[in-house]
Amino acid sequence: MDHLMQMVLLMLEGTEVTLEIFVVTFILVLPLGLFAALGRLSSLRLLNRALELYIWIMRGTPLMLQLLFVYFALPMVGIKLPDIAAALLAFTLNYTAYFAEIFRAGIQAVPKGQYEAAHMLGLSKVQTMWRVVIPQMIRNVLPPMSNETINLVKDTSLIYILAMNDLLRVARTIVQREFDMTPFVVAAVFYLVMTAVLTWGFHRLEAHFGRYAM
C-alpha cells in the first residue's frame, strides 16, 4: 500500500508537468488562435497568405517532428531554449493553427445579416466583432474546441521524448524499473480524470452559451 502511495505521489509530480504544459498552452492559444483567425479573414493579402502557409505547415507535419525541430534544430542556429519553453513553443505554434481554423469556421458561421444590422446601427468594425460576432462565434466553436482541448491534454505526453518528466514518462520509468504494469493503469486513470473534468467544463459552457436559440 505504501508502495502504491509512493508511486501515485511520483505520478502526481509528473501530472504537474503535464498540467503546466496544458494550461499554459491553452491560455496562449486562445488569443493567438483568435488573432490568427481574424488575420485569415482579413482582406490584407500578404497576412492572409502568410497565415495560410503557417497553418498548412503546422497541420501538415507531425507535432512530434515540430517538437524535435524546436528542441534539437533551433539550438544549431543558436536559439537555445530551456526545456519547458521549447515544449511550450512547439505546442503553442501547433495548436494555434488548429484553433485558428476552428475560430475561422465559427466566425464564418455568423450570418451576414448580423454584420448588416450592426452596420445600420452605426457599430464600428471592432464593436461589431467584439459585441456581435465573437459572442456568437463562441457558441459555434465550443464543440470542436472541446475536442481539440482534450487532444491537447493527451498530446502533452509527446514531451517524453524531450526527457521531461511528465505523467507518461514517470509512469514508464516506474514500469521499466519495477516490471509492474500498474503505473500505466494509474496514468490512464489520471488522463481520464483530466479529460472528464474538461468534458464537464465544456458541457457547462455549451449549456451557458446555448441558452438562446439561433
Binding site: 450570418p111 445579416g113 448580423q114 448588416e116 444590422a117 452596420h119 445600420m120 452605426g122 456581435v132 459572442p135 456568437q136 457558441r139 452559451f209 438562446y212 436559440a213 439561433m214
Partner: peptide, 16 residues
C-alpha cells in the same frame, strides 16, 4: 446612417 433605420426581411436581431 444615424438618420436611417433599417428593417430586414430576416429581422437580423442579435440572437445572443
Amino acid at each position: 446612417l444615424g438618420h436611417m433605420g433599417m428593417v430586414f426581411q430576416q429581422f437580423n436581431l442579435f440572437p445572443h
